[in-house]
């Protein structure tokens, strides 16, 4: 186990974590402000990837395609919010689960009708090679770009949420709805906008990850659960919590998968290690979440008092 390998896997974890953060940021705000469970958040991630694949092909440019897919998905998200989700805020969690689960089914099938079960979004040629970061550490350029984009968006989001008026309102809404109402924040419009922004972030994550994973119907379901794990670890409604949670989950998951089997190999017989290593590695983040919730029942950074 060399340091190079550890460093490489940590970067992979960071890269995955930052993309998870893009998903989790929107989800945690929706959850925090409106107390709304939105299972269909992952569907926006999927839609973003499909739309990007079409637009990249149409424009012939990866950057242009992705940049166009973002507002397109944001608009779809806002339409969804205005037409269906808005009526669910006042309902109980069970109704929200049922309705947004229904939306997953509907969006999956509509996607399948429009695109088929999968689509291709190849990596841009220029970024397909590795970059030598340190002597002996050659790292895929595309993954570095993902990290850069993730960091950039995270920084922008922080500035937006902590330094601007709109951001203050969002935060006020996330931590105290009554107070936000009293401050005269137009919750309805604000929320449509927040939802649109969340959808845009989904699209960005979906499009950026598409060359690494497959673009296929159902891709939203598994990552959705990870995003939920992230916001629960971080504390619902907290952007900072989402970032910390996302990076934590990304790194723990990646490192665990890469090294637990090796680690187990040192301490146990090969037969045990090859069975238990991957098994434990894949449940590591859920274990992490259970431990966090056990110690801090409201997550690492509880947004509400």
């Amino acid at each position: 186990m060399s340091w190079i390998l550890i460093l490489e896997q940590s970067l992979n974890g960071l890269q995955f974590g930052l993309m998870l953060f893009l998903l989790a940021a929107g989800l945690t705000l929706v959850f925090g402000i409106m107390d709304m469970i939105n299972l269909a958040h992952g569907s926006l991630y999927m839609l973003g990837a499909f739309i990007a694949s079409t637009l990249v092909q149409a424009t012939g440019s990866f950057v242009a395609g992705v940049l166009l897919a973002i507002p397109a998905t944001a608009i779809l998200g806002m339409v969804l919010e205005i037409s269906v989700l808005r009526t669910l805020y006042a309902r109980d969690h069970l109704s929200q689960v049922l309705a947004t689960f229904a939306l997953i089914l509907i969006i999956n099938e509509l996607t399948r009708l429009a695109w088929g079960s999968d689509a291709a979004l190849p990596m841009p040629q220029a970024l397909s090679g590795p970059v030598e970061l340190l002597p002996g550490l050659r790292y895929p350029a595309y993954r570095l770009v993902i990290i850069a984009v993730g960091v950039l968006v995270a920084v922008l989001l922080f500035i937006l949420v902590t330094k601007t008026r709109v951001g203050m309102r969002v935060r006020a809404g996330a931590s105290n709805r009554e107070m936000a109402l009293a401050m005269g924040v137009d919750i309805k419009t604000l929320f449509t906008l927040v939802f649109g922004a969340g959808a845009a972030l989904c699209a960005l994550a979906g499009a950026m990850l598409a060359p690494l994973f497959a673009v296929q119907v159902g891709m939203g379901e598994n990552i959705l659960i990870l995003a939920f794990v992230v916001i629960v670890i971080g504390g619902i409604g907290s952007i900072r919590g989402a970032l910390v949670g996302a990076v934590l989950v990304g790194i723990v998951d990646t490192i665990g998968r890469a090294f637990l089997p090796i680690l187990f190999g040192i301490f146990f017989q090969p037969r045990v290690a090859s069975a238990a290593g991957p098994a434990i590695a894949s449940v590591l983040i859920y274990l992490l979440m259970a431990v966090v919730l056990f110690l801090r029942p409201r997550g690492l950074f509880p947004a509400r008092g």
Partner: peptide, 11 residues
């Protein structure tokens, strides 16, 4: 695409 119908009924 049966799930489309199922989803719509659920909604």
């Amino acid at each position: 695409h049966a799930n489309l119908g199922v989803g719509l009924v659920m909604l």
